[in-house]
Write a protein that binds this DNA or RNA. Sequence first.
RNA 1: GGGCCCGUAGUUCAGUGGUUAGAACGAGCCGCUCAUAACGGUUAUGUCGCAGGUUCGAAUCCUGCCGGGCCUACCA
Length: 517
Amino acid sequence: MSGRSTFYVTTPIYYVNDVPHIGHAYATLACDVIARFKRLDGYDVHFLTGTDEHGQKVEKAAAAAGLTPQAFTDKVSQSFRDLIGVMNFSPDGFIRTTEKRHYAACQALWEKLVAAGDIYLGKYAGWYSVRDEAFYADSETEVGTDGKRRAGPVGNEVEWVEEPSYFFKLSAWGDRLLEFYDKNPRFIAPESRRNEVISFVKGGLQDLSVSRTSFSWGIPVPGDPKHIMYVWLDALTNYITECGYPDESNPLWRFWPADLHIIGKDIIRFHCVFWPAFLMAAGVATPKRVFASGWWTTEGQKISKSLGNAIDPVAATAEFGLDPFRYFLLREVPFGNDGDFQRRALIGRLNADLANAYGNLCQRVLSIVAKSCGEKVPPKGTLVEADTALLDRATGLLAVVRAEFDEQAFHRALTSIWEVIADANRYVDAQAPWALAKTDPVRRDTVMWVLAETIRRVTLLVQPFMPDSTAKILDQLAVPAEARTFAAFDRELASGTTLPKPQGVFPRFVEPAAAAS
RNA sequence: GGGCCCGUAGUUCAGUGGUUAGAACGAGCCGCUCAUAACGGUUAUGUCGCAGGUUCGAAUCCUGCCGGGCCUACCA
């Protein structure tokens, strides 16, 4: 393709035994905002999401629902596809592990691992939990008062299983993984997760059972189709399937290695230990960075099915608006931390940050321009120090926000942007354009130009977070579509351009009960 | 058991050796009136979890304790 730098970002692929909730929406939102930012910044971006559809759990859930596994996964996978529209995500690809191309990629990777001598046939015996799809050591299980053996006192029921299994020689990769982490300090973020992984690997690695014979809903092992590939070997491979693996002449292969895998903190081991080991063993380049996001609680409580307190993205966006919801999720909590979803906090952000600070800034500026400047971008007169100070701060944001995005520090990026919004509000008060209207209309016009131009610069940077709302604001500034990327960051508003009638973009949120009284 | 992280104003957090510990939101007061009862200015609040120690000096380093979260082999 062109000489542009590529940027490949992925969500976890979502397991289809669950309906989409805030956790899924959150991880994908983070990827979406990054993908949008990188596109605006001129990168050749590929943004992948999808669903993980194999395994014994899915096979059983399908049977329980009276459906074939394929029909069952078709249905659930669609609910994740629907989330894209609800949240206004912008993926370039949606992968399903039940696709043909994925079978081919997994089997090709398997054969590479065999050829490299990293896979051998052995036997696995142990306590197995169907529900967990996991084996447990004898010491990890105990027999309850009902006579059933469980994985821990409150775990799921386990049964003794012995089966032939292929193993991946993970035990041989400990030192090479530690060296890899050492040479790639940015590979795992945040820092505390990196510490956990390194400590885990230093504790010693055992070979990994990578096939099952106890069920059939999965990808057959090449040459030994009684064996089904371990679901994680299957699932992780999706990231290279998308790029055409093993066909390196596929045009999408230019995106590998991935720049960023965003995942939930629960699956960090698979992505930071197994995945790089598989890839190194197969002679495939390793991804550059894995970022583990935290979990959300609701009003201080753990989200659970029994409490029924899960945040439904459809309901949340319907009540508060899509963009405010997107903004809140990334502004309220430092990315990587756990977060608490509080209604009061969301309304606070919506009113204080969006309606009052940003929305009202746009409104007060645009309405003066409409009323007093003939509905045109006013003439840019001679700039004084206060003007250039504000404009320079807005311009400086681009570099600041870029740096914060490199760390996935969305909340800090937004904080920096909102500091300039506050500066702009202070500037309005200090310049008092309503007073200048009587004493010095020329100066008033310059002040209004400075403000409109500041809003333009700020809004360009807010686009990845709130694409719809910012599009409306840029429309009101008559910024043409092709001038909305960062390449056009320095393309100032042209005086004399006709502007449409201003309209509020971020209405205040009033509790329905309060509005009624 | 081992390991990692955290405990700072009503709330969410920043601050990792050095002036009277900061910000935002919320609260009070004042100003302004272009604007979405928005904006600006200003005031107030904290034994920086507890107890020791190192240091000329600690929220910041060390030790112990208390409290919370997480990881500890294959569940998103």
